[in-house]
């Protein structure tokens, strides 16, 4: 808050030199003017905080709904292998990411249950052989290289550490993306304070500093564990 104090002093110091005639004319110089100055300062200060913390984040992000809804909880009950049942590693060690129709088709060739989303899924996608254009919350920019295998298989990390308890959700949240960069809001954090690097959970934000922070905590260095290489090109290829 030092900035605020300094500003007030500065205003007061400048005042006499700036407008001496008006001061002489005033019946009760001093208190009234100082009070009004503080008031205006506070109004400006409060308004800009509201704009910065509430209006700006709302303006910055645009919203999109997923093409259809998905219930993670219900699917977790049906599978044996947790997240990896659908979000699996391929034989060559690459990570499959969001499932494709091939994985869904065994159960969903016919409409299951009576949800509207299920009907749309089967009619619009499965029967037409068209992949669902899922919006991916955790999609990193194209210039970021990330190996799921190194983190999940070698470092034995939980999915939740980075992705949060998405497996416990019964519905898909609204996808928000940054109007300037085009990237998902989940990378920069959903809460306004995440924008300043503050977070409660490990999965709240997944920016470069968050990668480095975890690497420092876990391994004592920012470099790649498997290659011991440091520098930009470890992740930015």
């Amino acid at each position: 808050m030092s900035t605020e104090d300094e500003n007030i002093k500065e205003v007061e110091a400048v005042e006499p030199a700036e407008d001496e005639s008006s001061r002489l004319k005033s019946e009760n110089p001093g208190n009234g003017i100082a009070g009004m100055t503080v008031l205006f300062f506070t109004i400006g200060f409060a308004a800009s905080l509201i704009v910065g913390w509430i209006v700006f984040p709302n303006l910055l992000y645009s919203k999109k709904e997923q093409p259809i809804d998905f219930n993670h909880v219900m699917h977790m009950e049906e599978v044996d292998d947790g997240c990896e049942s659908c979000h699996f590693f391929r034989e060559d060690g690459t990570y499959s990411g969001v499932p494709k129709l091939d994985q869904c088709i065994d159960c969903h060739e016919e409409i299951q249950g009576d949800s509207r989303d299920e009907a749309v899924f089967v009619e619009e996608y499965i029967s037409k052989g068209k992949e669902v254009p899922w919006l991916i919350y955790s999609k990193q920019p194209d210039c970021v290289f990330f190996s799921h295998s190194a983190h999940v298989r070698l470092a034995k990390m939980d999915c939740v550490t980075c992705h949060g308890p998405i497996g416990e959700s019964t519905t898909l949240k609204t996808y928000e993306y940054n109007r300037i960069t085009g990237y998902s809001r989940d990378i920069w954090g959903r809460n306004p304070e995440n924008m300043l690097g503050l977070k409660k959970n490990t999965w709240d934000r997944m920016k470069m500093n968050d990668c480095a922070e975890c690497h420092m905590e876990e391994t004592g260095r920012k470099s790649s564990v498997s290659t011991h290489k440091d520098g930009c090109f470890v992740c930015h290829k």
């Binding site: 205006f40 300062f41 704009v51």
Partner: peptide
């Protein structure tokens, strides 16, 4: 000045 200070303290 208040607005500038507030903005500086917002994201």
């Amino acid at each position: 000045i208040g607005a500038a200070a507030g903005t500086a303290l917002s994201p």
